[in-house]
Amino acid sequence: MYATTYAKAKDVADAVSQLKGADEGKLLAGGQTLIPTLKQRLASSDCLIDLSDAGLSGISDEGGSIRIGAMTRHVEVETSEMVKKAIPALAALASGIGDRQVRNCGTIGGSVANNDPSACYPSALLALGATVHTDRRDIAAGDYFTGMFETALDEDEVITAVSFPKPEAASYVKFPNPASRYAMVGVFVAKTSSGVAVAVTGAGQDGVFRHGGLEAALNSSFSAESIDSVAVDDSVLMSDMHASADYRAHLITQMTKRAVAAC
């Protein structure tokens, strides 16, 4: 790792001002993405700003939605009685991220800020129509994810929380990469008052996306069979050493069927 400095932010305003004051400042949340990339010198930073004391942790029930603070760790979402009751699919998603050690440290804010094309949470935000709260504004999930590892966040913007509207039913099914546990394909299906949403992670060349064809089929008949008639276009999907685009297209159909069956 290149030399760097480390400091704790005492609150969100302090984190923003430390970011503004540094050349290449980086927020440090659970470190489960940032530290491996720093160690391998894939990233560098002159100043790491630790958010652990900035008061961003915790889960609350806001009536129509569940609000999860940015520094809330995956293990807390996995085991939260509130989340398990209101959006069990979200608790199940958290329980399948990486391994226990990753879940003991990794946070929802870090995952959403990073927008890894194979990460699990982005699919839940998109399918449930979540809102990303930052130090300066609220961003609808549909406007937030702008490409692979790209988001609508400004350089010095800090995520403070994510709010998830409670769905009528939802389910997340992933086909994990057997080595890393990241999603080779993950599909989040949500039934809400405004219809069915299907968000796909792990597969898109531009990161997480909603699939209009699958949504239309499920809106007309919410059953695994109704998906049989839907063609998944593989020309917009990733091909890499883990899976070809064609195979990913097949996995999208299969994971969607399993998610619908589990809804």
């Binding site: 480390y6 440090l28 470190g31 489960q32 530290i35 491996p36 160690k39 790491l48 630790d50 652990s52 226990r100 050690q101 990753v102 003991n104 440290c105």
Partner: peptide, 13 residues
């Protein structure tokens, strides 16, 4: 009391 990968945390943290 929590299991953690010590290679993925700074001593300062």
């Amino acid at each position: 009391g929590q299991s953690v990968k010590a290679c993925t945390m700074l001593a300062a943290q």
